Simulated assay, not measured.
Amino acid sequence: MASNKSNSNPMSAVGARPKRKTPVKRKPTKKKGKKSNTWAQIKWVVIITFFVGIGIWFGISFKEGIRYFFSGGSKAEGKSIYDVRTVEVLDRHDDMLVGFDVSHYQGVIDWKAVDSVAGKTSLDFVFIRATMGKNGIDKAFKLNWKGARANHFIRGAYHYYRPDENSTEQAENFIKNVKISEGDFPPVLDIEDMPKEQSMENLRKGLQNWIKLVEDHYKVKPILYSGENFYTHHLKDWFPDHILWIANYNFFVEEIKPEWHFWQFTEKGVIEGIDGKVDLNIYNGSKADIRELLVP
């Protein structure tokens, strides 16, 4: 028999209403108005205008290089964007002399085939690496030195300076291996690297010592080669009176600076008779001017 149990919830007996849930407040959604659409349109107009402007500037500034790039047919086979700048720079300096520099990295050079850049600009001079540090000798120096003279290039020999090696031994290495003749460039000191084992002050003293020893031997003041930033920050105030050969490959640097005697403007040059890329240089003057630099 079932038992008669009372309701355990007293509220149900009187029909109480259930408790209401607190409504969740919703954040009002922002409607995109005409103002935001206008700013978006302005942004895209500015972006498009910027890139169109860049394209127009590039087309005007590098018109000769672009013409060369697309010459000889619809495809620019074997050419690169670097050739655009090379041809443009050469066109802007068509009243100056053009040269190149080589080392054993260029392999065996067919000197008889070397005559121009891009088939349009004749070559007049060449700098050839001779020595490196206190005992390094470029493997191709003797062959290149003879080849340049035999093919009527104005030639110059350069020494790659190792900043942590003895400067006197480096000067002796160059003097021992390089015989300069009448009509050659003065010796060239190539300094590009920061020292790791000595201060910049001691490096500069070593460079001054190398220059003095080499100048005393050859009776002519050496040419100084370096990158523009390195020269400006570390050498300019200590070597103000030297013939300068400055490297700057910046794509947007289009003109040689008045204080530069030589400008190495690219390392991506292409020359008939030389395998691979070659450094190209411009001399800031004429044939009459360059004669005054040469060894008498």
Score class of each variant (00 low, 15 high):
residue 114 V to Q: 12
residue 95 D to H: 11
residue 95 D to S: 10
residue 87 V to D: 06
residue 104 H to S: 10
residue 92 R to F: 00
residue 93 H to T: 02
residue 105 Y to F: 08
residue 112 K to W: 01
residue 90 L to R: 01
residue 122 S to I: 11
residue 113 A to L: 09
residue 89 V to M: 01
residue 107 G to E: 05
residue 120 K to V: 07
residue 106 Q to H: 10
residue 118 A to H: 15
residue 88 E to W: 00
residue 99 G to K: 08
residue 86 T to W: 00
residue 107 G to N: 03
residue 114 V to K: 14
residue 106 Q to Y: 13
residue 94 D to A: 02
residue 100 F to K: 06
residue 112 K to A: 13
residue 111 W to C: 11
residue 92 R to L: 05
residue 90 L to Q: 07
residue 109 I to Q: 11
residue 94 D to W: 01
residue 102 V to D: 02
residue 91 D to V: 10
residue 113 A to K: 14
residue 89 V to R: 00
residue 105 Y to M: 11
residue 122 S to F: 05
residue 111 W to H: 07
residue 107 G to M: 04
residue 107 G to T: 01
residue 120 K to C: 05
residue 96 M to A: 02
residue 122 S to P: 11
residue 87 V to I: 10
residue 113 A to F: 06
residue 118 A to L: 14
residue 114 V to R: 12
residue 98 V to G: 01
residue 113 A to S: 14
residue 116 S to G: 06
residue 101 D to P: 05
residue 98 V to S: 02
residue 94 D to Y: 04
residue 112 K to Q: 15
residue 122 S to W: 08
residue 87 V to Y: 07
residue 93 H to N: 10
residue 88 E to P: 00
residue 105 Y to S: 05
residue 89 V to F: 07
residue 120 K to A: 12
residue 107 G to S: 03
residue 86 T to C: 08
residue 109 I to C: 11
residue 112 K to E: 15
residue 100 F to P: 02
residue 118 A to C: 10
residue 90 L to E: 03
residue 88 E to D: 14
residue 88 E to V: 10
residue 99 G to N: 06
residue 119 G to E: 09
residue 109 I to G: 10
residue 96 M to Q: 15
residue 117 V to Y: 09
residue 86 T to D: 13
residue 107 G to C: 04
residue 100 F to G: 05
residue 107 G to K: 03
residue 97 L to D: 01
residue 101 D to E: 12
residue 95 D to G: 05
residue 100 F to R: 06
residue 101 D to R: 03
residue 116 S to N: 13
residue 109 I to T: 08
residue 107 G to L: 08
residue 117 V to F: 04
